[in-house]
Write a protein that binds this DNA or RNA. Structure first.
Lengths: 345, 345
DNA sequence: CCCGAGCCTGACAACGTTGTCCAGGCTCTA
DNA sequence: TAGAGCCTGGACAACGTTGTCAGGCTCGGG
């Protein structure tokens, strides 16, 4: 491990500034700035001296000061619900990819589905003066963002629309996807189909429920209340709900699972059943093809959603984009077996 | 959607400053600062006037200026390899949780396993003057970080040690975990055991390979070259490698998979075999318990790793911690069936 | 030899905030 | 009633950078 000669120049905990570099190189402050930013108008010889001083001191430009001066931070904020949810991995990644292509850093945090925490986080990001925000909303009132929008913070909502403000939204066709998934079960002969989903106050959950109802209605099948479980989210309660609709007086022969977490739990429950019950889940899950039977799902393209949102964000920043829009991306039904099982009464 | 009265005070794209607020409230600049920061020494009446002006203008403190003045940013950087890898979800989440508990924001980016990109990202974060860094290294030379360390940027490496600098590291006991996993296969009667892993220049891969060799040696089993596949990472080549060691002249009866991506591909290959081949994978995978047979794995506790790393980071910042340390967290063997299959020649 | 053009370079202000310090007004006591 | 002390509020500098602008230098042409 080589020794560097930093000790002499910098006290521990103190960073050298352009002024220090200038002093060491025997040039003016502005000249250092020019070298650091690759601006023209500096003799090679001068540049060399400055570069030497920079290396010797371990100088690193202070972007806080730069931001303060320039106004733009070249960073965007991403607020999601839960970093651990596999749906957000690809989404986050694709947002970062686009940000990177535009030379911006990504600052992110998760709201843990808590509206207060979402607001806190968003405002903290605004205080950092991020140039833009990609928000997966937890709350349903975003009027607190009005001053930010007015001030020109580009904003795109993802997965769910913003509440009470007019902003860009990029989401999946939750209604259509759910309708297609349920119709798929119907096409395979099912009539008693259960729905296990989240609270309908969550937009995606409501839309998927609406899709379920629409498919049933299109097929002229009346829906029994006992077939629907709403607002259930923790595994234990999902399990109980699924078991109930499988063993009730009017047992279902198929289940439509409203999101990936529900799907996983339902798979577990079905694995314990002697009867073969069909299943279609909303959201793809890893290894779904390796299970017996493979799990048929309505897949969202998380990466495409993230990419679309981020690209819109930067187009807002370019000024290319003005009027907020709602973009719905299609879902894709992936048949793997579980959704094609015939009804077993 | 209610109309706010912002237009009058702020031009589009311009944010009000404390000066504006002060003017509107008819008080001095510093008084506004005091109110915003909840400092004492302001009459309730004055505070009310200021607060009113803040709300009316939609003022939001500019943290860049604040950081410039105060020196600390209350943000930490997280550099990981690939946001989409399920291993990093919980890790990232636990780091964020700790950061949040300390009132810090998390800025992150992924290196895509490219050393240059890692350096670029790390230095960008340093330019932002993050207080600390959690880095999952892609490269193996981190001397470029020396000035930062000298300047007091708290730094913790995760998953792999830093190269050529003395810094905190938090990682799994890759060697011990792999050794235990392979010993588990041996205990179930296997002698011809294959190893499919990443390039040994990657620390984790090298350690796991070492664990494999150690377990084999402990059992007095000589290892045939054809049983080992190193540096193979894309699914297609993993598939071919696995197929070869299963069909060669000296076919293996069990495979130890060096990481989660390899495990998934190997599962696919094994599912196509008529012969039952045992499998133990390093890293847990979701739904592993639902497969037939369940997949036995050596599990890392990603959340614990992240938490430990982040906590050390903040202890560095407190000054509680001075000397860099290497912390190895134990892995856990989770038996689910695939690792307990007897050899089938 | 002189003058103007062009190129380098550096002094200075400004970005928005916070820390320091001082002034003015008030209350309370002797 | 006067003086001491406290409380509130504001002026000012500083954080580290970048934009503006002007000055000094060199070099070529007249």
């Amino acid at each position: 491990m080589p020794q560097t000669n930093l000790r002499s120049a910098t006290r521990y905990g103190t960073r050298p500034t352009m002024k220090d570099v200038a002093a060491r190189a025997g040039v003016g402050l502005k000249t250092v700035s020019r070298v650091v930013n690759g601006e023209p108008g500096v003799t090679p010889e001068t540049e060399r001296r400055v570069q030497e001083a920079i290396d010797a001191l371990g100088f690193r430009r202070n972007d806080s000061a730069r931001v303060l001066r320039k106004g733009r931070t070249a960073s965007i904020g991403l607020v999601l619900e839960d970093l651990a949810d596999p749906f957000y991995g690809p989404l986050s990644r694709s947002v970062e990819e686009v940000a990177r292509a535009h030379g911006a850093l990504l600052i992110n945090g998760s709201s843990a589905e808590d509206p207060d925490r979402e607001q806190e986080l968003v405002l903290a990001l605004c205080a950092r003066r991020v140039d833009g925000l990609v928000v997966i909303p937890a709350g349903d009132d975003h009027r607190y963002l009005e001053p930010e929008l007015k001030a020109g913070v580009a904003t795109v909502f993802v997965d769910r629309p913003a509440g009470h403000i007019d902003a860009d939204v990029v989401l999946s066709d939750n209604f259509g996807g759910a309708r297609d998934g349920v119709a798929h079960l119907i096409a395979h002969g099912h009539r008693r189909i259960g729905f296990v989903g989240d609270m309908p106050r969550i937009h995606t959950a409501a839309e998927r429920l609406r899709g379920y109802r629409a498919a049933m209605e299109d097929a002229g099948i009346p829906v029994a209340d006992s077939w629907m479980s709403l607002g259930v989210t923790d595994p234990e309660r999902v399990r109980r709900a699924a078991e109930e609709m499988l063993s009730g007086p009017d047992p279902v022969t198929a289940i439509f699972a409203g999101n990936n977490r529900v799907t996983v739990t339902v798979i577990r429950v079905l694995a314990e059943q002697t009867r073969r019950v069909a299943l279609v889940g909303f959201d793809d899950i890893e290894l779904a093809d390796l299970l017996q039977p493979g799990v048929t799902v309505v897949a969202q393209d998380a990466a495409a959603i993230g990419r679309t949102a981020a690209e819109r964000l930067f187009r807002q920043l370019d000024g290319t984009l003005v009027t907020p829009e709602r973009i719905e991306l299609p879902t894709r039904l992936i048949t793997r077996g579980s959704g094609e099982l015939p009804p077993a009464d």
